[in-house]
Nucleic acid binder design. Structure first.
Lengths: 110, 110
DNA sequence: GTATGATGCTTTGGCATTCTAGGCAACAAA
DNA sequence: TTTGTTGCCTAGAATGCCAAAGCATCATAC
């Protein structure tokens, strides 16, 4: 199966996840939906991308996780942004801004 | 050797190369410098990234190459954007814009 | 003269990240 | 009872960039 153009650019996923969690704790499946909704359906994070990313992010101490039951009575693993995660989010946003600025400069060249 | 934060986001390199070439034919080493200069020193493309990318891009028919001697008397391989390359550049720019827009939306969430 | 640094091309191997594709389970609605 | 949604996880492949090395030419400085 030929890979089509990736939805996301590599490196943006962590930022999106951290951002989603900065609005409040959430479980994996919900993170996908939140990102989808916030982006007006433009960003579709695959489960196969998300869960490994969450694992990675937790290993780095940017989030903590905990199994819990939510309103609907379903069990799910809730992730919560840590202080370090919030710092990381800020750093990634700054880095993103720099990149966008740099690319913009190049693209403005005539 | 631990990888530090990537300079580029994966997926942007082709667009930058095509954009650099859209300003006129150039050889590999010059492309690196042009991107560096246009971005106000913010983007540093490694040779180990560039040359394989140029090969890829040429295979796809977005550029053609030809050995030539330039002013200084040095031999170099000059790359030139094809019509298909120009279309590709437009497509990649549009795709980039969509992504930036989507990420912006997510980031604006409170 | 010779060492250094810039210019120039190429290749190898590694590595991080994402996607595809599958499996599993619980629950609701049809 | 079957289908769709919610929910988690993993293996394997594809992608794409980087580090590091090699090689060659040329200019400059010492």
């Amino acid at each position: 199966m030929k890979r089509e153009k990736a939805d996301l650019l590599q490196g943006t996923l962590d930022m999106l996840i951290l951002k989603a969690l900065s609005l409040g704790p959430l479980h994996g499946y919900g993170i996908i939906q939140r990102i989808r909704q916030l982006s007006d359906e433009m960003l579709h994070v695959e489960q196969g991308s998300l869960y490994p990313a969450l694992y990675r992010i937790e290993q780095k101490g940017w989030v903590t996780s905990e199994w819990d039951t939510h309103d609907t009575g379903r069990r799910a693993k809730f992730y919560k942004l840590t202080r370090a995660g919030r710092r990381q989010l800020e750093a990634e946003e700054a880095s993103w801004d720099r990149l966008v600025l740099a690319v913009t400069k190049v693209r403005q060249a005539t």
